[in-house]
Design a protein around this nucleic acid. Sequence first.
DNA 1: AATGAATGAGAATTCATTCAT
DNA 2: TATGAATGAATTCTCATTCAT
Lengths: 213, 213, 213, 213
Amino acid sequence: MAEPGRADGVRNRRLLLRAATEAFAECGVDVPMSEIAQRAGVAKGTVFRHFPTKDDLLAAIMMQLLDRLLGTADRLLRAADAGRALRDFMAHGIGLLAADRAFCEVIGRPSLQHAEVREAIDRLCDSVEDLTARARHQGAVRGDITGTDIVLLLGGIHQTAQPLLDREPRAWQRFLEIAFDGLCARDSAALPYPPPARLRMPDPSSASHPVTA
Amino acid sequence: MAEPGRADGVRNRRLLLRAATEAFAECGVDVPMSEIAQRAGVAKGTVFRHFPTKDDLLAAIMMQLLDRLLGTADRLLRAADAGRALRDFMAHGIGLLAADRAFCEVIGRPSLQHAEVREAIDRLCDSVEDLTARARHQGAVRGDITGTDIVLLLGGIHQTAQPLLDREPRAWQRFLEIAFDGLCARDSAALPYPPPARLRMPDPSSASHPVTA
Amino acid sequence: MAEPGRADGVRNRRLLLRAATEAFAECGVDVPMSEIAQRAGVAKGTVFRHFPTKDDLLAAIMMQLLDRLLGTADRLLRAADAGRALRDFMAHGIGLLAADRAFCEVIGRPSLQHAEVREAIDRLCDSVEDLTARARHQGAVRGDITGTDIVLLLGGIHQTAQPLLDREPRAWQRFLEIAFDGLCARDSAALPYPPPARLRMPDPSSASHPVTA
Amino acid sequence: MAEPGRADGVRNRRLLLRAATEAFAECGVDVPMSEIAQRAGVAKGTVFRHFPTKDDLLAAIMMQLLDRLLGTADRLLRAADAGRALRDFMAHGIGLLAADRAFCEVIGRPSLQHAEVREAIDRLCDSVEDLTARARHQGAVRGDITGTDIVLLLGGIHQTAQPLLDREPRAWQRFLEIAFDGLCARDSAALPYPPPARLRMPDPSSASHPVTA
DNA sequence: AATGAATGAGAATTCATTCAT
DNA sequence: TATGAATGAATTCTCATTCAT
């Protein structure tokens, strides 16, 4: 509108990502692009200049998350105590999710099919698999726990605590502890269901059920 | 011309609920009302005769779910093995959620604020609290686990397995087992975060943060 | 399942077609749907209720034109004087085009790829081919004139007179006469270019050049 | 630092005209300005520096066309065989139009109202009138054919062949021959409609009917 | 009561044009 | 002068909801 001057493109991109992350986190993926523009203090057209479609914007936000997760996972691969490292990774990941309501809703959206996002998820799965394997070998978790279990639990634990997040932003720690105790339980019987297959983002072709497996 | 219209009305209401449950489960809450009307084999106007707004329809579906959960909880209160009963309750609840993609999305919607729904959630929490207390007293779960933990875990475990649901509809059993092992872990240290407060549906007035606590 | 409100629907569809024909004729295909709605005296949504996309509306208008042309062609096939019939057909066709500026612009639009439209064009070409063959056999036109020539000339003659249409709505008669004289010229040398192939609407797949051949 | 910027400006203007001609020819007048900028290898702002509005750019392209037509007409005025000259002029003109899909669409656009364009059209009409008068006097065309007829036929013949252009870029020669035969037909009855008035571009004020006369 | 046509407030997206650097 | 980021009006289309029949 009466915006004084044209801001640096880089700066606006950052403003937009911040505004979008916030808006998606608060309102979910159905928040209008115009709301995001407003929060970023730019005109609607500027959003589309930086992110040609809404799904491109969602994908960019996913990438932020995935990049941070990947960085953490790779760093923790060098830790001596693999069990501790695995738990730290989960804590970090859940903490990131806790800031973003959109994560649950983004599943099944075309944004997950961006080549970039698919690759990042793939790389993340690789690293978490390594992280988990080390914990398994050190006896820190049961022998039948896989990296995919861990990735799935990230979202699940976050979701468990989500209704509390407003009033108790750290409540997820409670459920992480419970889950981690379950992951360790060495003397228990075999789990009643085999380990899940590696996560595969759905091909852009399959249109029926939009959920991944 | 005694009551045929009324009978029709009852029948249509049932058709609509079935169709809506199915449609929401398959497509999520963004499915158009027209799609629901079509699946039910009635005209759009008829949907609105029975459910004045979309959120009323969502609330009715929530009520179905909650009623079934409540029935199960109350029945299981009479079981001898309280640990077994708690686990059965969770399995039943997660199984219901697994059939309905809309459940995750409904959080934060005004449908959660229907007086009827709030009351049902309240009643459910009471029953699950009882169920959990019995399991606690029988030593089947740790002493610091509450009914609210259990209710929250319902959604969380479902969410953990959700990306697998298409290909492996029973995968949630694996994560229920893990979580339940964690709930039992008697020799562990205290949980790092205190038990959550009782679930409270948000007041219809507070519009900012749509998540409950 | 009576048909009470449907009378309105039929009436509105007619209003819309009339309004759209007028609007396209006056303003070209770029006229906004909202303008058409306004001219028809209905709300925007009503246009889309009747014609799900703009191209559907354009296709419906094309169908009006093609149906009338086809009716005329078929009727004239029974005339005794084939040369006269062919000229009458052209006069009728050009008269229809003269009322519609959109016709020139619609070429290459997806509306031409509607199955219904393609079939109508096909049928029209068949009839005009017959009409032309009869004129050829009666010696009313040169031996190397085909139905496709005639169909193409319809648009061409209209286009020739178009800049005059506002002030002289019948000026196309002058150019029809000139063209028809050219079609008859029996003692002339062979035409410098072979007859065109049958008109074929482009496959929806070919996206490069949107013009038909 | 004498005039390098100016030289750049001239060069850019030429690049832009070339790119725009090409883009309009391929895609029609709705091609975005950004596409033209890209084809010219300059930034969008540069397009607007040279042509303040899109219609200014269209007008400049019209001027190119008109200048070439005018040059040809004037050159052919000196030919001995006036009938041959007239036909050569038409062939040249149609050939130019055949390369430019935008020409048909430009009719009715404000670009036709540029003073410069109006003058060029006027001058062209004068020359073509002379050209036609000479052909008339030599008996090469009917006595009631005017220069305006010829100018109008340029667009009309092009339009006739347009649907074939993709596959048969020279098909217009067939229709030029037919039309020219019609123009010659000396023994025919009088044409059924009087010669058109001189072409007049519409006043910028009259906004209702966008077609010229 | 049921129907389905009509409504109109948005939603995403495009693009000519402006303007700061 | 050239650049390209920003603008915002305009456009197509969707969908919850209302209402006449």
